[in-house]
Design a protein around this nucleic acid. Structure first.
Length: 499
RNA sequence: GCGCCACUAGCUCAGAUGGUAGAGCAACUGACUCUUAAUCAGUGGGUCCGGGGUUCGAGUCCCCGGUGGCGUACCA
């Protein structure tokens, strides 16, 4: 013990940040080398998963199996001991008995620390207490863990550590792994769903010369050889629509989007979206696509279209109620803003306690009223149709009332789940919309669109009428895994470096 | 960006009013050949987030800074 303390003290002097425990484990690793065994072994032939031993006990009882995984707990009784081995499938109890292993092999077991990764070969049996176990005959050291595991009972709770060291979080908190497995199942299911519907998955650039397709502040990076700034994409929309021009009729992209904005329980600077475009379709087709995709994802995640989110029961079974924004504002807030002039609308907004610009239009006031006061109340999935044109620069305007567009958002638990429209394919209209966005930008709105001449040029070649859809995958996964924070569904969320 | 809160052993947490820093788990030593949060006896382990200040004396009070959480703003 004294020499360990001395070694730790020496390590500290040398600037190595390690405690006595790490020093001790390093010495144990050297001990393995002394036995002629590398503490960082190579290939190990495992033929059985931990969970399989329990699931297939009837067939496996008395047979030999080879398992590999991490030692999570050890219960030592002198000349016999138990340990729990965990692999990706689950957990199995190992039984080590000196009589069976022999002194040398049992001595090896005594050198195993919690957290070590080992291979074990032995016979499947059931203990007197009834627990299905493996009586180990051969133990193989595969990886020495130098750092101790978090508390076996309480796990790792420090949220800072959980996000920074997700690997430790996953070791200590098995539910975390489960959440990310569900996420993977959802993503894989969406790809199957889209393929079954005839959509082709494509990859468009992540680095854009113009950041378009959404209202958001971009990250800026620099290309040295071309000596020019590039933006990380804030959406995939404008490139996917170029592909419609090129003749692809059903395309989608699922990938990472970057927005240089605040971080919160619902926002991470990089996140995953899916955008899909279907030629010759309109936003009604997108409503059906959205409902079906989400319902299918729910079945993949929880086996049902009814899910529980933060104590609320949410029924995602299609079809979802379809209401226009104007209707919802009128019914829930008692102001028929859509029937008002701009000036009347500004007064109505004031009555509702909203602050709007002096020259705000009816559409802006309606959108503000909806965003602030209606959307948070929409708990069950709802399709909110017909967004004002001012806030929808890429959506086709309505024939009978050009103040509105063929755009909807699907809303659930007070949050946007999907955003879709009948795509604007009139190049002249699109150029005007960009121009008014550029005006907004010059007035100081950093999130207004930039002019994208090449995109307008593409439309001039002719983009077929189309429906388009965007869904935030992270928020969908939050809903389907009952996660309160987006950081709980992103493996490595963005964090400031620790000082 | 602003406000509130948190930061103490490897992990989970206690530490009224300022007075020699504690527990459980983990680790170490010993006992124990069917335990499962194994049990029993003993031992070691601390930059109390960092830096200033007040005080005879600061984990505790004050100021500055760091990181995080929550709320809020921003986020079609």
């Amino acid at each position: 013990m004294e020499d360990l303390t001395a070694i730790a003290a020496e390590a500290a002097r040398e600037g190595l940040d390690e405690g006595e425990e790490i020093t001790r484990r390093k010495k144990v690793a050297e001990g393995w080398r002394g036995l002629g065994v590398s503490p960082y072994g190579g290939k190990f032939l495992k033929d059985t998963e931990a969970q399989e031993v329990t699931d297939r006990f009837e067939q496996l009882e008395g047979k030999h199996v080879s398992l590999a995984g991490r030692i999570m707990t050890i219960r030592s009784h002198g000349k016999a001991s138990f340990a729990d081995l965990r692999d990706q499938s689950g957990k199995i109890q190992l039984y080590f008995k000196q009589d069976i292993l022999g002194d040398a092999e049992y001595g090896k077991f005594l050198m195993v620390d919690l957290g070590d990764i080992v291979g074990a070969r032995g016979k499947v049996f059931r203990t007197r207490r009834g627990e299905i176990s493996v009586q180990v005959e051969q133990l193989t050291m595969l990886t020495k863990a130098l750092r101790p595991l978090p508390d076996k009972w309480h796990g790792l709770k420090d949220v800072d550590a959980r996000y920074r060291q997700r690997y430790v979080d996953m070791i200590a908190n098995p539910d975390v792994r489960k959440t990310f497995l569900v996420r993977s199942a959802i993503v894989a299911g969406i790809r199957r769903f889209m393929e079954a519907r005839g959509f082709v998955e494509v990859e468009t650039p992540s680095m854009h010369t113009i950041a378009g397709g959404a209202a958001a502040k971009p990250f800026i990076t620099h290309h040295n050889a071309l000596d020019m700034d590039l933006y990380l994409r804030i959406a995939t929309e404008l490139h996917l629509k170029r592909l419609l021009v090129g003749g692809m009729e059903k395309v989608y992209e699922m990938g990472r989007i970057f927005r240089n904005e605040g971080i919160s329980t619902k926002h991470n600077p990089e996140f995953t979206s899916i955008e899909a475009y279907q030629a010759y379709a309109d936003y009604y087709d997108m409503m059906e696509l959205t409902e079906s995709l989400v319902a299918d994802a729910a079945k993949n995640a929880v086996g049902s279209t009814k899910v529980s989110y933060q104590g609320q029961e949410i029924d995602l079974t299609p079809p979802w109620p379809r209401r226009t924004m104007a209707q919802l504002v009128r019914e829930l807030l008692g102001e028929d803003i859509a029937a008002m002039s701009d000036e009347q609308a500004r007064k109505a907004a004031a009555r509702l306690g909203l602050e709007v610009d002096k020259d705000a239009t009816m559409g802006m006031c309606l959108n503000a009223a909806y965003d602030e006061l209606v959307e948070p109340k929409l708990i069950q999935p709802t399709i909110v149709m017909d967004y004002p044109i001012e806030v929808s620069p890429l959506a086709k305007k309505r024939e009978e009332d050009p103040r509105f567009t063929y755009r909807f958002e699907a809303v659930c638990v007070g949050r946007e789940l999907a955003n879709a429209f009948s795509e604007l394919n009139d190049p002249i209209d699109q150029r005007q919309r960009f121009e008014s966005q550029v005006d907004e930008r010059q007035k100081g709105d950093e999130e207004a669109h930039m002019m994208d001449d090449d995109f307008v040029t593409a439309l001039e070649y002719g983009m077929p009428p189309a429906g388009g859809l965007g869904i935030g995958i992270d928020r969908l996964v939050m809903l389907l895994t009952d996660s309160a924070s987006i950081r709980d569904v992103i493996l490595f969320p963005t964090m400031r470096p620790k000082a």
